[in-house]
Design a binder for these strands. Sequence first.
DNA 1: CTGAAAGCGCTAACAG
DNA 2: CTGTTAGCGCTTTCAG
Lengths: 366, 366
Amino acid sequence: MARSLNARRPATLASLAAELGVSRTTVSNAYNRPDQLSPELRRRVLETARRLGYPGPDPVARSLRTRKAGAVGLLLTENLSYAFRDPAAIAFLEGLALACEDAGTGLMLVPASPEREDVAAVHRAGVDGFVVYSVPDDDPHLAAVLERPVPTVVCDQPEIGTVDRVGIDDRGAMGRMARHLIELGHRRIGVICMRLARDRNDSFVPVHRQHEAHFHVQRARLEALATEFTSAGVDWTGVPVVERFDHTIASGSTAAAQLLDRDPEITAIICTSDILGLGALAEAQRRGLRVPQDLTVTGFDGIPEAERLGLTTVRQPVLEKGRAAGRLLLDTVDPGRPRTVTLDTELIVGTSSGAPKPAAQQWYGP
Amino acid sequence: MARSLNARRPATLASLAAELGVSRTTVSNAYNRPDQLSPELRRRVLETARRLGYPGPDPVARSLRTRKAGAVGLLLTENLSYAFRDPAAIAFLEGLALACEDAGTGLMLVPASPEREDVAAVHRAGVDGFVVYSVPDDDPHLAAVLERPVPTVVCDQPEIGTVDRVGIDDRGAMGRMARHLIELGHRRIGVICMRLARDRNDSFVPVHRQHEAHFHVQRARLEALATEFTSAGVDWTGVPVVERFDHTIASGSTAAAQLLDRDPEITAIICTSDILGLGALAEAQRRGLRVPQDLTVTGFDGIPEAERLGLTTVRQPVLEKGRAAGRLLLDTVDPGRPRTVTLDTELIVGTSSGAPKPAAQQWYGP
DNA sequence: CTGAAAGCGCTAACAG
DNA sequence: CTGTTAGCGCTTTCAG
């Protein structure tokens, strides 16, 4: 029967127009420009739509026509399970989501795990722009994003001359941390850092790997430490640096263990993130080391739990980073020269850092 | 100049084909069906593409043609700022994101705050289906989703006969909690629940509002409490129930204060979420009430922080809910009758619940 | 292995 | 206020 044939294919704007005996424009206007037709006609259109089960203009067809997808893509290269367990990453996501919400724009998480080389998802994403959060400079997904003819903003890493960026002064911030520890008297230290490249190396990091790190943020932080401690007379090549691929508290613990096993004499463990710092703290406790009397531990990020535990750290405005990234992307008017937003950080001296036992400083002395 | 005109409009599949002197099909095949043309020709196509700056097939045009967007939409009605601060919501998101990642599908957060009545974002979303997480039964965004001709799965609430659903047995779970407290001897209790409707009512909840609650989950939990305590001889109409619109720890604290001010004699505060429970715990501490000696506090969800603090609660597999919702949506083959996944919960008796002071139970007596 | 034809469903000028 | 005209950029039978 005709009826069943009719009901078969869902109604389209054209079929609705035909049914009503008006043009497609009119139907389109009924949805998109209510002021362009009489209220009465509009009512009739909408009612007929309901009767025919027409769900309104197809979003994809509309996007094709208007060249606007109404969404931005987010590329996170961290494994999702780690990303959603890291308060800093979540706060970033929140900030970005807020910026999108303000603009009435969707936020699409693009499936791109570090393992999967499959870049197709980036090509398939119907978005008006991308935010890239902290990926290695040789990430294939990033390369795919950059090929797409849409605006992009990178948060933290890598630094790319041609696209907008938001980040912090990692070198400066870690430099201040280093000076804080140097002033306290620490000279024999160990470092725990996050993944430095796409290959897994859960072990000590030779100096050349530090310099060749594909994660600019980690590289900058390590270099800041190297610079400051070298100035303080420490031989950086002798400083043990341990790397962890997975960004978890457990990783921080095992890394701390590796460090303390190698050199039980270290007086401070500097971590490039709070998550790792939390792990180091746990390992110290497990070994019965008092913090900070026996061991100083520091982090980076300023996540609530770290601050609650008194971890000395660098607080960075993570939520603001997300929001700034979103704004930058959504404000893109003229593709002038790339903009950079650098947000401020703050050294938070908690209770996890203090003078090392043997080397009492003047102001701690008797 | 012709060249600049050429460079003006970005290359398309058609222009590439013209340049190469082959048909559009061939170019399309070079991207989508490599086995359909000679490797040599394919190489030539791809190289010319690079030279012309052709970024590959436009995803939106492709979606229109293939009728696949390669993404699912997520509708959260909680304000994003609250959603991203609630560990349970985050875990749900993680589970869903994992399911999407497994399927190589994008996950689009659709901007839909409870305040904004603007349903357009739902209409604009180019997605193959929707996951709806815990929204009121009269949510306009939900209505908009249901009008769209795509599969939908609802998590937790509301219960809709026509779409897939994943949830838990809220009534049963809260019933067990109630019996636990009744066995301990609690008869004079107070309750703190989440938002019951779209309007803000940060105050006591009359019984009729409990029954008319637009959030099925809250309604079920309250009804389970009412049933069990009534069976235990408690007059439910006399039990103070306080509602909070915002789902925050601070809300839990002020709600607990409201309860304790009204009736300082209550021996237990039952919260319908851990976040609220954490707030109640904080308020108890602020007042110098010992938990559980002076006051029993319970939660619901089983978020890590609650378990760490020993909050008696119902643990539900939140991440699994997200994953199940994603799977359900992505597995949709035949639109048979709606499926329901009900996940198990577990009563976790922590250190925040104990017998009330005056009414020593036999096994706690001398 | 390659090409021609036929739209997917919609919106945006621009006339009337 | 309404209709006509022209595609947006792509995939997909179906012949050759």
